[in-house]
Amino acid sequence: MNDDAVGSNNPDDSTDFGFSRVDRTAKASMVREVFDSVASRYDLMNDLMSGGIHRLWKRFTIELSAARAGQTILDIAGGTGDLAAKFSRLVGPDGRVILADINAAMLEVGRDRLIDKGATGNIDIVQADAQALPFEDDSIDCITIAFGLRNVTDKATALRSMLRVLRPGGRLLVLEFSKPTSPLLAKIYDQYSFQVLPVMGKLIAQDSDSYRYLAESIRKHPDQDTLLGLMEEAGFVNGSYHNMTGGIVAVHRGFKA
């Protein structure tokens, strides 16, 4: 488990930024710089890096949300809005989807994409920090955070904030890179992440450092069981997770009692 996992209990007041240690107060702005840099080509890079598989991971996450007409869904770190667009159809005109992200550049790309797809009317776009969500208590039916939790400085605080805004019975879904279950796959994945990924980042987004950070931040993120423990510590019940693509990615689910 890394230092982020224990949140504000970290005594030296530093936190991980990829494989580096940085001041806790500086991490958010450093992460923002990374995403400012990659925002315009974020979806294209995701498609190239994952071979399009990220769409399948997100599809299964949407199924696990069990989203229904009339519900309120909060998609944190929703960036370019691909989950929000699908939720918008599922909740219908009587429902509401909130696309939230700490990064204004990502939200701008997301807003434009949603308008292009015609997904408007039931979507609100909010710039918000996952650690201090600006929503009422017990107001959200389902929260999703896809590939965002690892960039949050204090994960425990963020999870407690999510629990606060969820309605009793509501659910949180965390889709995030995790730990491959096979040692062989882990070795191949390491080679890919640290050799291929930065080169692709340089060629396509002209930014190898940002993609190196993405690879490093994945390695520092808690593994499946540690994250499940964090969710339980934050107060989520009936927690479980599903490994996907050999554990490269896992989707965790927890409910508010």
């Binding site: 598989i53 399948l56 991971w57 599809r59 299964f60 599903h242 490994n243 996907m244 693509t245 989707v251």
Partner: peptide
């Protein structure tokens, strides 16, 4: 089954 694999088959 791996949900991603199954999702790929179902999507197709």
């Amino acid at each position: 089954h791996d949900p991603a694999l199954l999702s790929a088959a179902l999507l197709g």
